[in-house]
C-alpha cells in the first residue's frame, strides 16, 4: 500500500488507476440517477410497493466495493440499490425487477427490497434489519472451509447494530477468524429514531472492542476515506486475521421509505448534509488531481442519463410473469 500521508495525496488517488476512479464516479452517478429514475417511476405510478432510497450515501456503497472482485461476496440491506450497482449490476435488469418483469434480477419475485445479483457476488438485499449479518458470516465460513480466498463485505445500517443478530454474527466471525468485513452505513436514523436515542455507544465502531476486532469510524461521504478503511480490512481478512467493523457515517437525503413524512428531522439538517454531497466531493477530488475535467464529468452525467432512460425503456417493455408460475422457484427444480 502506498504511503499516502507522505505524498499528501488521498488514498484513492494514490491507490487506483484513473480508469477505475472514473468508473467509480460513474457508478456513483448511476446509483443517484437510478434512484431518481426509480422515484420518478414510482411517482408516476409505474411501479408499486415501496422503496428505500440511498441518495446521499453513494460513496459508502461504491468505495466499500473497490477492494472486491466478482468472486467476493456482499450481503446488502433494504437500502441496497447502491450496493447492487457498486458490485457491478446492470441497471436495466434492476429496473426490470422494479417493474416486476421476468427480465429482472429476481424475475419479478423480489422487487426493490430483495434485489440481488448472485453472479457478481451480491447475495441479496434483505427486508429484515440485521438479516444479512449471519448470512455474511456463513458466506465467510464457506470461503474459509473451501479455501476460495473470497472475502464477504456485510452492509448493514445503524438500526441493525441493535439487533441480536449483530451480536451473534460479529462474535462468531471473530471466534472463527472469518474473512468478513462488517460495513455499517450509519445514516443517523433507524426510520425516525436517531442513533443518539437508540445506541448506547457514541460510535457504532466502538462495539468492535466487544468482539476483539478492529473498529474504525470514517466519513462515509468521503470516497477515499471509506476505500482506505475497507481496503485495510479486506487485506486483513484475506490474510486470515479475521473480521473488522467499519462505520461509514453518512446521511440519507430522502425519507426512510416512500411513506416517510420526515417529521423527525429539520430541513436545515437535510440541507447541511446535501452540502456534503459525496458525488460532488468525489468529482472535485478527481478534478483537483487532474483525472477528469469538469466537461468530462458533465459528459459522464449525460451518458448516465441516457443509460438510465434506456434501462427504464427496457424494463417497461419487459415480460410480465405468468400468474400460473406463481409457485415457481419455491423449490429447486431438480430436473433442470
Amino acid at each position: 500500500m502506498p504511503d499516502t500521508a507522505q505524498a499528501n495525496v488521498p488514498f484513492a488517488i494514490a491507490t487506483y488507476d484513473p480508469d477505475r476512479l472514473r468508473a467509480a464516479l460513474r457508478k456513483m452517478y448511476l446509483i443517484r440517477k437510478f434512484e431518481e429514475g426509480a422515484e420518478d417511476s414510482y411517482t408516476r405510478g409505474l411501479i408499486h410497493g415501496t422503496m428505500h432510497l440511498s441518495i446521499g450515501q453513494e460513496a459508502s456503497a461504491v468505495a466499500s466495493c473497490m477492494a472486491l472482485t466478482d468472486d467476493d461476496k456482499i450481503t446488502s440491506t433494504h437500502r441496497g440499490h447502491g450496493h447492487c450497482v457498486a458490485k457491478g449490476a446492470d441497471v436495466a435488469r434492476m429496473f426490470a425487477e422494479f417493474f416486476g418483469k421476468e427480465e429482472g434480477y429476481c424475475r419479478g419475485r423480489g422487487g426493490s427490497m430483495h434485489i440481488a445479483d448472485v453472479e457478481k457476488g451480491n447475495l441479496g438485499a434483505n427486508g429484515i434489519v440485521g438479516g444479512g449479518l449471519p448470512i455474511a458470516v456463513g458466506a465467510a465460513l464457506s470461503a474459509k472451509r473451501l479455501g476460495t480466498g473470497a472475502v464477504t463485505v456485510c452492509f448493514f445500517g445503524d438500526g441493525a447494530n441493535n439487533e441480536g443478530a449483530f451480536h451473534e454474527a460479529l462474535n462468531m466471525a471473530a471466534i472463527w477468524k472469518l474473512p468478513v468485513v462488517f460495513v455499517c452505513e450509519n445514516n443517523k436514523y433507524g426510520m425516525s429514531t436517531s442513533t443518539e436515542r437508540s445506541t448506547a455507544v457514541a460510535n457504532i465502531a466502538d462495539r468492535a472492542a466487544a468482539y476483539a476486532m478492529p473498529g474504525v469510524t470514517v466519513d462515509g461521504n468521503d470516497f477515499s476515506e471509506v476505500a482506505e478503511a475497507v481496503e485495510t480490512a479486506v487485506a486483513r481478512a484475506r490474510r486470515g486475521e479475521g473480521p473488522s467493523l467499519i462505520e461509514n457515517v453518512t446521511y440519507r437525503w430522502r425519507g426512510h421509505s416512500k411513506s416517510d413524512r420526515n417529521r423527525y428531522r429539520t430541513k436545515d439538517e437535510i440541507a447541511g448534509w446535501v452540502k456534503k454531497d459525496p458525488i460532488a466531493r468525489m468529482g472535485a477530488m478527481l478534478v483537483t488531481h487532474g483525472i477528469m475535467a469538469e466537461e468530462d464529468i458533465a459528459a459522464m452525467e449525460t451518458d448516465v442519463d441516457d443509460e438510465i432512460a434506456e434501462a427504464i425503456e427496457f424494463a417497461r417493455s419487459g415480460t410480465d410473469p405468468d400468474p400460473a408460475e406463481v409457485t415457481r422457484d419455491v423449490h429447486t427444480d431438480r430436473a433442470a
Binding site: P134, I135, A140, L141, S142, A165, M172
Partner: peptide, 20 residues
Amino acid sequence: TPISELGGAGVAVGAAMTGL
C-alpha cells in the same frame, strides 16, 4: 457454535448459499 441459535441458523444459511 456459541449459544447463538439465530446466528447459527443464519451462518448455516449463508454457508449453504455459498457452497457448503
